[in-house]
Design a protein around this nucleic acid. Structure first.
Lengths: 180, 180
DNA sequence: CACCATTTTGCAACCAGTTGCATAAGGTCC
DNA sequence: GGACCTTATGCAACTGGTTGCAAAATGGTG
């Protein structure tokens, strides 16, 4: 039940149309909860029906025509409640770790290359996060909101840092004996 | 497409019945790819039909009766191929990070308690991993398989370490101003 | 041996997320 | 103004994962 709340958050930050939301999910919020435009349109429909958001323009709602949504008080209340809700961390689901296990049984052929590719991807993501950090969180900006959002970004940075370190380490274990 | 390969790996490590698999998924493999017994039974059926595994006992296969499976050569081949396959890392999907974002907009009421709860959970998981590490990977065990499996476990340890550190840090940001 | 709990397997329905495609409006180019 | 591209919304079908429940074998207890 996270997607509706992700959308409510995004809409509170700035009222948007479905497509705008989809684009914003490709960065920022989407770094921690990605969604396709389909999911977003469907969920916008549900949220509207539930009375948590409403469409703005009142122009005849036709197909190829932009529809902007804003959050209603009930929506804000639902989001506030969700912040305090208990919810366990999701179990890790990373196929790469699984593949390592499989490799322990059937051999590591082709694995090192994958590890290198992943390392490159995580390095790139890490660099992107760091650029955002420099751009959006200079030392002088330090409101409550900034500190919270910065903490989220530091989460991303920490995760990518972990993966680059682990992959580097692990390549030392796997890589060498695959070269021969 | 990870579950079938997780099952193949588990079955190669040791031929098992569905329920045994389900139990083993609650530890070890399941730390990185969890699955319910339903998923497992369904997948076992598919794998059998695909000719990648087969049921052992040949006794009349009835409902409440144990059925052991073992991996066939085709299954091993499929797993070997999968190890080398390209597959991008999954995007992070952690509701807690999302809730932090939401909290930046609607306030942090109730958040600190959740952070503390998560911190406790991650500490516990970390302790469990470390215990497994001591038990299963003493310095003298150092075969190829051991090194790979140990790397996987180090992955888990690294992730839990990251979360405990991030949560501690973040509690310092959120916790203080919620006490008043 | 009738009764009951446990073990093991499984069906059915559901929810969340993905993929592929369709349709409408608006702008651009000739 | 017809052909075409982009923007925007959406339907339908599918896949992966979850939940709730049922049902057959097994094994004990009175």
């Amino acid at each position: 039940m996270s997607l509706p709340h992700a959308i409510l958050t995004a809409l509170l930050e700035k009222p948007s149309s479905g497509l705008e939301l989809a684009r914003r999910f490709d960065k920022s919020i989407g770094y921690f909860w990605s969604a396709t435009h389909q999911q977003i349109y469907r969920e916008l429909g549900k949220l509207e029906q539930a009375g948590l958001i409403r469409a703005l323009p009142a122009a005849a709602p036709a197909r190829g025509q932009k529809k902007e949504y804003e959050v209603l008080p009930a929506g804000r209340a639902a989001l506030t409640a969700w912040v305090a809700e208990a919810g366990d961390p999701r179990p890790v689901r990373e196929p790469l770790l699984l593949r390592m296990r499989a490799a322990a049984v059937v051999g590591t052929a082709g694995l090192a290359e994958e590890l290198r590719r992943h390392l490159e991807l995580h390095r790139r993501q890490l660099a992107e996060y760091r650029a955002i950090e420099e751009r959006d969180f200079p030392p002088e900006r330090d409101s409550e909101e900034d500190r919270l959002r910065h903490a989220v970004l530091r989460g991303g940075i920490g995760l990518e840092t972990f993966w680059t370190e682990w992959l580097t380490e692990t390549l030392a274990v796997v890589g060498e004996r695959e070269e021969d």
